[in-house]
């Protein structure tokens, strides 16, 4: 089967997007647009200190989400914070999906020795305690955006690899693969043209979930002060600031957190909706 055909099939299956999936797509699209246009939409410079007397103001007409202890506009900062979260989420997903798919295909279709080695490698990475490994890697080095993305990707490609490998193994004995091999199609071509299109739905679903998870983890790291540093704005760091003002500034904590929750919810809704539409057996969960 060709890649275009697989895409057309997915398109037909997705026609008439309703319910949770549509809600998720709308939320996610709103988030992406808001982050891309943050420079235009934000009424104030997220880093600009407000005039004297403007510090720690509750939500009002001029500052819809209030101001922080330095007089900066929280609404503008929430808009700009989305850039980091979405960048981290999408980049982590892309890296993890590519790595996971490549390793999964090789571990399912490659030479026997390679298969065994890669399976062992996946298990080794799985044995690292998740959140803990990320904390460790980030804490021992200087916090930066690139490193954060790399670490999140390195610690999250394994479930994609495992799912892809299981599917590749199930596929490799199917008639159309055997027929392709019999016609003399090489190993690489079989993996690329015949197996890959059939595992793509799985990768897409796992990838959507991964975006949400990466954003959650990034915000927690930023909250601990291990994420991207000032002047970059992150939702996690904003919540940390809110914690310092827990008694007199509820808006500092409430709004960035709600932004994280809505964003993560969007990708979880998408993953859930796609799962029940694209994957066999996905309907059971409904």
């Amino acid at each position: 089967m060709d890649l275009p055909i697989a895409l057309v099939r997915a398109d037909v299956q997705l026609r008439g997007i309703r319910g949770d999936l549509r809600l998720g797509l709308c939320l996610a699209a709103t988030g992406v647009v808001a982050a891309l246009l943050a420079g235009v939409l934000a009424p104030a410079d997220p880093a600009a200190l407000g005039p004297a007397g403007q510090a720690l103001q509750p939500p009002s007409a001029s500052h819809p989400l209030g101001t922080d202890p330095l007089g900066r506009d929280v609404w503008s900062r929430v808009l700009h914070g989305g850039r980091i979260s979405l960048l981290v989420g999408w980049s982590t997903m892309a890296l993890a999906a590519v790595m996971g798919t490549a390793v999964g295909l090789a571990a399912g279709l490659g030479p026997r020795r390679l298969q065994r080695g890669l399976t062992w490698l996946v298990d080794l990475f799985l044995a690292f305690p998740g959140v803990y490994l990320v904390l460790l890697l980030v804490a021992v080095s200087r916090p930066s955006l690139g490193l954060l993305i790399a670490v999140l990707a390195v610690s999250s490609w394994m479930d994609v690899a495992r799912l892809v490998r299981i599917e590749a193994i199930a596929l490799r004995d199917r008639e159309f693969i055997v027929a392709a091999r019999g016609l003399g199609v090489g190993g690489w071509a079989v993996a690329w043209r015949h197996v890959l299109p059939n595992v793509l739905p799985t990768v897409v679903v796992a990838g959507a979930l991964r975006i949400g998870q990466a954003i959650l983890l990034e915000s927690f790291l930023s909250y601990l002060g291990l994420g991207p540093q000032e002047p970059l704005v992150t939702w996690g760091a904003m919540i940390a600031q809110g914690r310092a003002n827990l008694l007199d500034g509820w808006w500092l904590t409430a709004f960035p957190g709600a932004a994280i929750a809505l964003t993560v919810l969007a990708y979880n809704l998408i993953a859930d909706g796609l799962r029940s539409r694209l994957l066999p057996g996905g309907e059971q969960g409904r």
């Binding site: 949770d20 949400g212 959650l216 915000s219 927690f220 909250y223 919540i239 809110g242 914690r243 827990l246 904590t253 409430a254 960035p256 957190g257 994280i260 929750a261 993560v264 919810l265 979880n268 809704l269 859930d272 969960g285 409904r286």
Partner: peptide, 18 residues
């Protein structure tokens, strides 16, 4: 199902602060 997804999407450190 929907409520489950919502609860699952909340960052626990934020939920704790709230």
């Amino acid at each position: 199902n929907t409520a489950g997804l919502v609860l699952y999407s909340l960052p626990s450190f934020w939920l704790g602060l709230v």
